[in-house]
């Protein structure tokens, strides 16, 4: 099967929220395309709507208007639920590891939700833990890991189902600069190695500069640079 020309295509996404009597338009017609293996950074001020955009792209929220396609297939929040497990991985600022599970079980969780855990899945989880430099920490609980280690576990988890697209929402926001740098290096390296497309939301211009394309969300629209 040939690779689709676009992994993600968003056209004219609108989103507004009601705040008291006012209607606040957060996204005013966002267009975005991401090709296979491409990395895109989205920057913007706090409150510019970066997380809102990411939630729409992940099919977690409903746009007021606009169209979203994953691998050329139109998706809505209801149809996205079934596809999300295989199509995209997500990395969050606060890691969001399940505290009752070990690092290994956290990595395996997307596969568990998508189906059964077999030997191949366990082997892949070990490989991913090894890739993020945590092969000897698989049996540790999140509380026994540092912030950087937790984010690396979250990264391994996001890649578990070999998704074509990875969405990262300020993944270094809770980390110190040095740890943040290493996590970004790892994130970009792994995505490049596996030809996983990446949308990285970040405040950090240095991190954004490491991606292939930098966009800025301003006044509800995406701008180059």
């Amino acid at each position: 099967m040939s690779e689709p020309s676009l992994v993600l295509q968003a056209t004219g996404l609108h989103k507004s929220y009601r705040s008291g009597d006012r209607q606040i338009e957060v996204l005013a017609g966002v267009d975005l395309t991401v090709g296979p293996g491409e990395s895109v950074a989205i920057r913007g001020e706090s409150g510019a709507g970066k997380s809102t955009l990411l939630n729409l792209l992940a099919g977690l929220d409903t746009a007021d208007a606009g169209r979203l396609e994953w691998n050329g297939v139109g998706v809505t929040p209801s149809s996205a639920t079934g596809l999300r497990n295989r199509f995209l991985g997500m990395v969050f600022q606060s890691f969001y590891l399940i505290p009752e599970l070990t690092a290994r079980d956290n990595v395996l969780m997307p596969r568990r939700i998508g189906g059964r855990i077999d030997a191949a899945a366990r082997q892949r989880a070990e490989q991913l833990l090894s890739n993020v430099g945590l092969s000897d920490r698989g049996h540790h609980l999140p509380t026994q890991l540092s912030g950087g280690e937790r984010q690396r576990v979250a990264l391994a988890r996001a890649l578990m189902n070999q998704p074509p697209l990875l969405l990262a929402d300020e993944p270094t926001g809770n980390l110190d600069e040095r740890t943040g740098d290493s996590v970004i290096e790892l994130l970009l390296g792994l995505c490049a190695d596996t030809r996983t497309s990446l949308i990285l939301v970040t405040h950090n211009p240095a991190h954004a500069a490491k991606t292939q394309r930098v966009l800025t969300l301003h006044a509800g629209k995406l701008h180059h640079g």
Partner: peptide, 16 residues
Amino acid sequence: TREIGLLGALGARARG
């Protein structure tokens, strides 16, 4: 709450 949100983000259905 955040873990429930995470499960949704990982593709879990509401009934699950």
